[in-house]
Design a protein around this nucleic acid. Structure first.
Lengths: 147, 147
DNA sequence: TGTAATAGTTATAATTTTGTAACCATTATA
DNA sequence: TATAATGGTTACAAAATTATAACTATTACA
């Protein structure tokens, strides 16, 4: 286990977060959705139907918080509750057409917002950023979905 | 401008954001510092002395919030106020030795926390993550340092 | 069957973040 | 000099996140 490399990863993550935050939080503003709601929609969009616990695990979010967020999303018609036929304790959450729509809208606003800034980059940097963000996403997802 | 690639970057960023936040916020808990305080320390550590407005701009944080956070950081002795000799309206914030210390402590806790999870990864994945986070950091920093 | 474990909700409180408006001191400018 | 603009603080309210504990319903298992 290379200690130096882990320190570097930690350092990078600490500095990247506020930067990401800056690029992401603005487009979400003015929408009828909170950041938490957006994350839940994103998780459902990526992973398909998920139980309440699954969502909490995926986003490292406490269960009561998931309940609150899902309640609000249902109120807006962005997701719906489904009973699990095999285990009646489980409640599966499914994103609706309207939910997918609003998710794309926000993603479009985010892309639009980024496009202005990305204009200053070279084609090569675009490629690097596309691959690098994908890799970070994949690996962190793997790490955090365990247990 | 490759629209598809930008969409992919936007998509990745939306999914990475909550994951990063969770990896950061957990180790910070139980410390005498909030995520916001951590971001301010990080900004000062990377950019050196900054005015209140600079901090707000760098972190896309409203000014009153910066004041509140800096007040708390000063209370703990992690940063200090410096008067600007050229413009008496400006107050520059400088990280102290104690601030650097606590920043490193938390980074160590973050690294420690990640180490456990990183154990499940291959050496190759470690390399990928180290490089990828570095690239994301560098490129986003470039983009956002422009105005 | 009886007990423990799991899935989810409810309620409540504390903390953090965000937003707004008013305000003072200082600087820039017409 | 009078006025506007800038940097920062204060005060307040609202929203979002986090944490905890108690609770119901269902399932697993000894």
């Amino acid at each position: 286990m290379d200690k130096l490399k882990i320190d570097q990863i930690a350092e990078n993550i600490i500095s990247v977060y506020p930067l990401l935050y800056k690029t992401i939080s603005r487009p979400i503003k003015h929408q009828s959705i909170t950041p938490g709601g957006m994350f839940v929609l994103g998780s459902l969009k990526r992973n398909g139907v998920q139980s309440m616990s699954d969502i909490g695990k995926c986003l490292a979010m406490p269960k009561p918080h998931v309940t609150v967020i899902v309640d609000k999303l249902i109120e807006e018609g962005y997701v719906e509750r489904l009973n699990d036929p095999n285990d009646r304790r489980i409640i599966n959450i499914s994103i609706t057409g309207k939910g997918i729509e609003v998710f794309h809208e926000i993603k479009k606003a985010l892309a639009e917002n980024m496009k202005i800034k990305l204009l200053n980059l070279t084609e090569e940097e675009h490629d690097i950023l596309a691959v690098a963000t994908q890799q970070v996403k994949d690996i962190l997802t793997t790490i955090l979905s365990k247990e």
